[in-house]
Amino acid sequence: MKPAFSPGDRVRVRKVDAPGHIRTPHYVRGHEGEVERFVGYFRNPEELAYGRYDCARRALYRVRFLQCEVWPDYAGRGNDTLDVEIYEHWLEPAAKP
């Protein structure tokens, strides 16, 4: 098992409205960020929430977003960031800007 993304990779959070116990915040769905680090493999909370403890482990990343890209009217500095933990199945590759 190898993680699909490496630190520095550009990724986009899938913009889907899935039901259930989702740990991907709505505010980053559809947004692009950069993989800050691969965290490890963890059991998928979307399965765990329904008692499926034997579910497969999923790669988890910390993805760094620029605040000014997440919130178009962001009042702070241009390079303020927001780091969010996101599972691999919520990410797709994005082109370098």
């Binding site: 915040p25 963890f42 988890l60 702070g76 303020d80 960031t81 780091d83 969010v84 933990e85």
Partner: peptide
């Protein structure tokens, strides 16, 4: 400013 959202 670096905000860390502890989502998982």
């Amino acid at each position: 400013v670096r905000v860390h959202d502890s989502t998982a």
